[in-house]
Simulated assay, not measured.
Amino acid sequence: MSEPAASSEYGLWVLVVLNSALFIIFAFSFAKPSKARDWTSFGAFSAFVIALFTEMYGFPLSIYFLSPWLASQFPDVNWLAHDSGHFWEMIFGWKDNPHFGPFHMVSLAFIVFGFSVLAWSWPILHAALRGGKLAKTGIYARLRHPQYAGFVLIMFGFLLQWPTILTLVMFPILVWMYVRLALKEERDAETEFGDEYRAYTAVTPRFWPRWR
């Protein structure tokens, strides 16, 4: 490991800003937060994205923190090279371009699927809110909180692609927060829609759909 590798392959703060902005704006275009709880969930997702890209292109804090162990266990890997941030490919000895590694491919599938869930759910929710009705068609007929599920899928995909200590700590905290927000929304919906909502919850799972 050498300082020139670190200085040449990290410290790319323009890429931190551009990539963070790209994914946050992209998510915003699907989520379109309007209520306070919407902004809370979107803000938490944005913090996760910023933390991720800060380590991906700016400063590899996790690599520095783990460098003694990594250097002793994997002496042939230059951990300050940017591609070495694809942690799982390096650990399991992937020799080719890590962007085509199995974990990277699976992570892309989760990220694309998560954004697809957001894109599918928003028009249905928006139409229901405008009409003062309960959203229970389309993807809402499969699960009650597809937007939160979409955010979790995207974050999990990023963890597979580029895990860091901070994002690994943030992930369960954000999942817990999304669950609490979902439960609060359910209490509000039951108050507003009464028996209609109770009948809906009786046949529709909260986060994980039943496909049969």
Rank of each mutant, 00 (worst) to 15 (best):
I63T: 14
D195M: 13
D96P: 00
P146E: 12
Q73K: 07
N97D: 15
E185H: 07
K133H: 12
F113Q: 03
H126F: 14
S62M: 06
P172K: 08
M90N: 05
S84A: 15
G194F: 13
S84T: 08
I173K: 04
F151A: 03
S67T: 03
F59I: 12
G85H: 09
F53P: 02
A81M: 09
A199D: 14
P146A: 07
P75G: 09
P205E: 10
S62N: 01
A202H: 11
L52I: 07
I25W: 04
K35G: 08
G58I: 12
S72T: 03
V112S: 04
F42A: 02
F156D: 03
V49I: 15
Y197V: 05
P98G: 08
T164H: 02
G194H: 05
Y197D: 04
E196C: 10
G85R: 01
A47T: 14
W208V: 14
A189H: 11
A182C: 13
D83M: 05
R198G: 05
L129S: 11
L18N: 01
G85Q: 04
A6G: 00
P123R: 04
L66Y: 14
I124C: 00
V203I: 14
G101M: 12
L174H: 11
P123G: 04
P33S: 02
K32H: 12
M105V: 10
S20A: 15
R130N: 11
V203C: 06
F30E: 09
I50D: 02
V175Y: 05
G131D: 10
G43D: 14
N19S: 06
M170K: 01
R212T: 09
E55R: 03
V16E: 05
A47E: 09
T191C: 04
F30M: 09
S107M: 08
P4Y: 07
S20F: 12
H82S: 07
Q147I: 13
W13D: 11
T167A: 01
G132L: 06
M105G: 09
V175S: 02
A127W: 06
M170R: 05
V179K: 04
G43Q: 12
V175L: 06
P163S: 10
D195G: 04
V17F: 07
V77I: 15
A47C: 13
S107Y: 10
A189P: 00
H82P: 01
F87D: 02
V16Y: 11
I124Q: 08
E89N: 12
I165A: 06
N78K: 06
W88A: 10
D83K: 13
W162I: 05
Y178T: 09
E89Q: 06
E190F: 03
S46C: 12
L153H: 06
L160R: 02
F26W: 10
I165N: 04
T167N: 14
A128Y: 09
L160C: 09
H99A: 14
F42I: 07
W176E: 09
P209F: 06
Q147E: 11
R198L: 15
S121R: 01
D76L: 02
A71H: 06
P123N: 07
V152P: 00
I50C: 06
F65M: 14
R212D: 07
H126S: 09
W122C: 03
M90S: 07
